[in-house]
Structures are given as C-alpha cells and as structure tokens.
C-alpha cells in the first residue's frame, strides 16, 4: 500500500530524513495492510458503529467545580507572562 509519508509527516509537524521517510513508509504500509484483513469479514448486515462498547448518553450534570491545582498546569508553560502561556509568532 502506497503511503504519502511526507504529507503525514507534515500533518504531524515532523521533519524526517530520507532514511526515516523510507523506514516509516514501509512500516505504515504494513500496519495498513494488516488492518485491511478486517475487510475480509462479512459486514453487509451489520450497522456501522462508532464505538466498541454498547453505551450511550453518558452525561454529567452542569455543576461547576474548580480545579484545585492550577499551578500544576501552569508549570508546563515553557514561558509565562501575565499568567498566560507565551507562544512564538503564529502567522508568517
């Protein structure tokens, strides 16, 4: 199965060397080929499902509960300013 490795790498923002492109291209093809075996199953009379478990309407009541340790989240900011995450230029 032919895979556009460059496209997928770009979507994932990965810079790949030529060797890596070759390696991942082969590996991804094999994964997809393996998944293809599912197509051998007869599914004509089975309704499409989106989930593996037969559950529906798992809902919570609309109640506000503040998270007690916001500092533990903010600590992940490589750079912080005025209690916000500082990020580099977005648009070229």
């Amino acid at each position: 199965m032919k895979i556009d490795v460059e496209h997928i790498a770009r979507l994932a923002r990965l810079g790949l060397s030529d060797e890596e492109k070759k390696l991942y291209g082969e590996q991804l093809s094999r994964i997809l080929e393996y998944a293809e075996t599912l197509n051998k199953l007869p599914t004509e009379n089975i309704a499409p499902t989106t989930h593996a478990i037969p559950m529906k309407n798992v809902l919570r009541e609309d109640r506000m509960v503040p998270f007690p340790d916001i500092e533990a989240i903010m600590i992940n900011a490589p750079q912080e300013e005025s209690n916000m995450f500082l990020v580099p230029r977005i648009m070229e």
């Binding site: 919570r60 609309d62 109640r63 506000m64 509960v65 503040p66 998270f67 916001i70 989240i73 903010m74 005025s82 209690n83 916000m84 995450f85």
Partner: peptide, 24 residues
C-alpha cells in the same frame, strides 16, 4: 448558557483572570 464547560467542570464565566478556569 451553562455554568460549567462542555466536557469538564470548569467555570464558563466570562472575564475571569487568565488561566483560572482550567483543569487537566
């Protein structure tokens, strides 16, 4: 017009101090 967010219990209040209504 909900009190909490779509998938978690953080407040939806407009105009709070930055990054005070957040959770994992």
């Amino acid at each position: 017009l909900t009190e909490s967010k779509m998938f978690c219990s953080c407040s939806t209040k407009f105009g709070s101090k930055p990054n005070t209504n957040i959770c994992p």
